[in-house]
């Protein structure tokens, strides 16, 4: 289990990295934390010809306030997010999620940008960013664009990124008043990829009716899966146990269409999805108070 050979570049600046990416395009793979890429290379399931190591680019690692929201450099380590007070205060859903991502040894290396750009359907952060209505900054030597997280994920391990483009920043908008959030996943063992997981955000209007709700699942499809019918059922209503049960059942039975694998059948995933949707919605509505 030794990786195949590759050409190695370790640019010190973003500009240099984008130039290399422009030069190598499809041939190159960006090395962020490497905690998903290197195991795949050790199994020789991935054999990139060129690796562009982003770990020396200091300018890509930051956690900054952006009004009442946050801007996160793509190379910010997951561990830094986990320990960040800014994140705890301004993106509590993200804060709550961090300990579920693998183990500290992995989070010490793994980065937020690497994780999102990898687009693993079983990964927590894409779903969480979706639920937070995050935006992604994609840069290339030619320029940059800003993409909503919801438009970024194209399929399993596939994103909207062009070969010469790099995810450089993640933007998390400010939380509205009367917002609530919750994250939960069920994994065979702590730190494993989840059998099913969900990130929930809700918002109440002044009358206490649900004004917005997002229920974003992972490990149930090709990428993050938003439960639209469940949201529709919630919006405009006064939250309560019966409503939550209805929404959870809609999410599990109608919104998602999970596959089975050796760890969980489709039916079992639906069952877990229903339980998780119910629990996270309950918790999220509690938190609006």
């Amino acid at each position: 289990m030794k990786p195949a050979a590759f050409d190695y570049h370790a640019p010190e600046s973003l500009e240099e990295a984008l130039a290399l990416l422009n030069e190598y395009g499809y041939e190159a793979k960006l090395l962020a934390g490497g905690q998903s890429l290197i195991p795949t290379m050790n199994f020789r399931l991935a054999r990139p010809a060129v690796l562009i190591d982003l770990n020396r680019i200091k300018e890509l690692s930051y956690i900054e306030k952006n009004g009442s929201g946050l801007r996160l450099g793509a190379m910010t380590r997951q561990r830094a997010l986990e320990r960040s007070e800014l994140v705890a205060n301004h993106a509590p859903l993200l804060h709550e999620t961090m300990p579920f991502i693998a183990h500290p040894q992995i989070r010490n290396r793994g980065t937020i940008g690497g994780n999102i750009a990898h687009a693993d359907p079983a990964s927590e952060l894409p779903a969480v960013m979706w639920a937070l209505d995050g935006y992604l900054k994609l840069q290339s030597a030619a320029g940059e664009r800003r993409v909503a997280v919801q438009d970024f994920f194209v399929g399993m391990f596939t994103t909207d990124l062009e070969p010469e483009e790099m995810l450089t920043e993640i933007e998390i908008p400010a939380m509205f008043p009367r917002s609530g959030w919750a994250f939960r996943e069920i994994a065979r063992r702590h730190g494993d990829y989840a059998l099913v997981g969900v990130a929930a955000t809700v918002r109440l209007d002044e009358a206490g009716r649900c004004e917005d709700a997002r229920l974003v699942f992972f490990s149930v499809g090709e990428g993050p899966v938003e439960a639209q019918l469940a949201s529709d059922a919630l919006i405009g209503e006064l939250p309560g146990d019966a409503l939550i049960e209805t929404a959870a059942a809609l999410a599990a039975e109608a919104d998602i269409d999970p596959d089975g694998d050796i760890h969980a059948s489709a039916d079992y995933r639906r069952q877990l999805a229903r339980v998780l949707a119910r629990d996270t919605l309950r918790r999220a509505f509690e938190r609006t108070k």
Binding site: G34, I38, P39, N42, I106, N108, R109
Partner: peptide, 24 residues
Amino acid sequence: CEHGVCGACTVLLNGEAVRSCLIF
């Protein structure tokens, strides 16, 4: 294991625990 699960290869990198099989 050389795929980052078992933790036997854990070392400190700048004071933080990391899997040395997942770093070049």
